[in-house]
């Protein structure tokens, strides 16, 4: 018997009494002995863990704070301490869910999704870091091999997900921006002026990056700045929508 065969036996029969052949192999194979010891340790440790673990209160607090920060909930909601209370509040849950799909909220969620795409694109470029076009805290696997020109991004073999090209991301953001005239902003002249001015600034910068990339499709730094600007625009649009919503 070989190591692979022993693995198959363990997979099929678990840690119970092993067949004679397996025992003979195990007696002379240090690697398989170590593996079996590891499996036994895991099994013993797993038995010592309680069947159900209650998440700590701080998890609910964080979730609630995040939902409030994103404007998805407004009314005070008590911290859910026991799962039994969830049943009684199922109606509230459905109310919150339906509120989530009101048009303006949907727009915010849409921009949120764009943000997620933007963040994913940036992560893909920079590796698992906290962002920024020049961040080197993560592994820069993708940066050494620039993606193909606009509109020709192939699906990744790992995820089989087709990512939007810079132009696609730009078009999606433009569509989100077109909804803005229908949204009344905060009514606060300083804030409104700042938001609109910032939108103009970021639009100009995006146009500059896009033009440069059109001329130099392989320019990695310009591409990083462009993705970063898309992300900022998405956040700004979300802030503008949120600003309008919070006042009504």
């Amino acid at each position: 018997m070989h190591c692979k065969q022993l693995e198959s036996v363990l997979e099929a029969e678990g840690l119970g009494p092993l067949p004679v052949e397996a025992q003979q192999h195990l007696a002379g194979c240090q690697s398989c002995q170590d593996m079996l010891a590891d499996f036994s340790t895991i099994a013993i440790t797993a038995k010592s863990i309680p069947a159900e673990m209650q998440p700590p209160d701080r998890i609910w607090i964080s979730v609630r704070a995040q939902l409030e920060a994103e404007g998805i909930i407004h009314e005070p909601v008590e911290v859910l301490e026991h799962s039994s209370r969830l049943q009684g509040q199922s109606e509230g849950f459905w109310q919150n869910l339906s509120a989530l799909f009101r048009p303006r909220n949907l727009a915010t969620v849409g921009v949120g999704l764009l943000l997620a795409v933007g963040a994913f694109l940036q992560t893909r470029k920079n590796g698992p870091s906290i962002g920024g076009p020049n961040d080197t805290t993560g592994t820069k696997v993708a940066s050494s091999t620039p993606p193909p020109p606009t509109g020709l991004v192939p699906p990744t073999t790992a995820s089989k997900v087709s990512l939007p090209s810079p132009s696609e991301a730009g078009v999606t953001l433009q569509q989100a921006e077109q909804d803005l005239p229908n949204i009344q902003l905060a009514g606060n002249s300083t804030v409104d002026a700042s938001l609109r001015q910032s939108l103009r600034t970021v639009d100009e910068f995006i146009a500059e990056c896009e033009y440069h990339l059109k001329m130099n499709p392989q320019d990695e730094l310009a591409r990083e700045y462009l993705y970063s600007a898309y992300q900022q625009k998405a956040e700004l649009l979300a802030a503008m929508m949120d600003s309008g919503r919070s006042e009504h």
């Binding site: 607090i61 409030e68 008590e78 009514g187 606060n188 002249s189 300083t190 009504h248």
Partner: peptide, 20 residues
């Protein structure tokens, strides 16, 4: 709520008014 303090300030002015 426990050790969390939530504070919010919102405008009571009507939406059509410029409320500074």
């Amino acid at each position: 709520v426990g050790d969390r303090i939530d504070i919010s300030a919102t405008s009571l002015a009507t939406s059509s008014d410029p409320h500074e």
